[in-house]
Amino acid sequence: MRVCVFTEPHRGATFDEMVRAARHAEAAGYDGFFRADHFMPVNRSDGFPGPSDAWVTLGAIARETRTIRLGTLLTSATFRHPAITAVTVAQVDEMSNGRIDFGLGAGWLGAEHTALGIPFFTPRERFERLDEQLQIITGLWATPRGERFSFSGKHFTLVDALALPKPVQTPGPPVIVGGRGPKSTPRLAALYADEYNVPPSSAKKCAEQYELVRAASEKYGRTKAPLVFSASVAVACGRTDAEIAERLALLEEPSILPPEPVVAGTPAQVVEELAAYAEAGATRLYVRLRDQSDLDLLDLLAAEVIPHLP
């Protein structure tokens, strides 16, 4: 089981805190350091010190680290034009010497779009746009050097695009598609993704979603390599009841999100619960680090949990 750190800077984090956490995760042996792509908090926090751009941050962290993989869960397709996203991610892949995993989603936080004046669209249109963006971004990356890329869709049109710069990874960074949807998400994962991720859910729910994606892969004749199945988990692990309670309270603070399951307990208890995700089919876990100054949690998981996972 590969384990990554997942952070949510939109809830309040400085760049220095993010760099410190990424370096610490790298030194502790985590597989990846990932961040959300939001510009406002989903809880009651005032968001201080303010929002940060996911790809500006990752580009800088890429120059401050050497081995850990970096990426987003998930970049919102509503925030950026796909041709610009392709350029940005390719450049950060070069800055990291090929350590980027690219997560792309349809976007879901309507209040964020209203606050910032970003068009939000209907759910159907957001998924149509996501489909076209996945085609455009992967198409630009895969176009041979010296050739041009064109695309004509319902929402986007590109004519003889130069298709540069090229990412270090070929044909491009691994693509992550995530969500709990029963139809559109499995189809997009089957057609375009290298990894399918389930947001915080029970192991049983993850197994059900993985089965939907397997069925979609067969239905749409997937020709790419088999998908990596991953799961995002909220973990409140501690050596004492007080430590567990403190971390659990932070994960259960009020937000506009529906309640999410939390894996809580001692290291031995957490190992037992996380093993259920491996049994469900996950080979990669994203552990949510709500407090980016809580580096002791990263050390505890690295020393007493991760070595005992399947």
Rank of each mutant, 00 (worst) to 15 (best):
V3C: 15
V5C: 07
P9E: 05
P9Q: 04
G12N: 08
T14M: 10
E17I: 06
M18T: 03
V19H: 09
R20A: 14
A21P: 05
A21C: 11
H24L: 10
H24E: 14
D31R: 15
R35M: 13
A36R: 09
M40W: 11
P41A: 07
N43G: 07
N43R: 01
D46M: 12
F48D: 06
P51Y: 09
A54N: 01
T57Y: 08
L58E: 01
A60M: 01
I61Y: 01
A62P: 04
R63N: 12
I68P: 01
T72S: 07
T75Q: 08
A77R: 00
T78S: 13
F79M: 10
F79H: 15
F79V: 12
F79Y: 13
P82V: 11
A83I: 04
V89S: 08
V89Q: 04
Q91E: 10
D93K: 06
E94Y: 13
R99N: 07
R99Q: 12
D101K: 04
D101F: 07
L109Q: 02
L109A: 00
F120S: 02
P123I: 11
E125P: 03
D131S: 00
E132Y: 00
Q135K: 08
T138E: 08
G153K: 08
K154R: 15
K154S: 12
L158F: 10
D160V: 07
D160R: 05
L164F: 14
K166H: 14
I176T: 04
V177N: 00
G179M: 12
L188W: 02
Y192F: 15
D194N: 14
D194R: 15
N197S: 15
S202G: 14
K204Y: 00
C206E: 02
E208Y: 06
Y210C: 03
Y210A: 05
L212W: 04
R214H: 09
A216T: 10
S217H: 02
K219M: 09
Y220K: 09
G221E: 10
R222I: 14
P226M: 13
L227F: 06
F229N: 13
F229Y: 15
A231V: 05
V235D: 03
C237E: 02
G238P: 10
T240D: 07
I244C: 02
A249D: 04
L251R: 10
E252I: 02
P259D: 08
P259K: 06
E260C: 05
P261M: 08
V262H: 12
V262T: 11
P267C: 12
E273L: 14
A278T: 15
A280Y: 09
A280M: 08
A280D: 12
R284H: 15
L285K: 07
Y286L: 05
V287C: 04
R288G: 00
R288Y: 12
L297H: 09
A302K: 08
A303T: 05
V305C: 02
I306K: 00
I306E: 06
L309C: 03
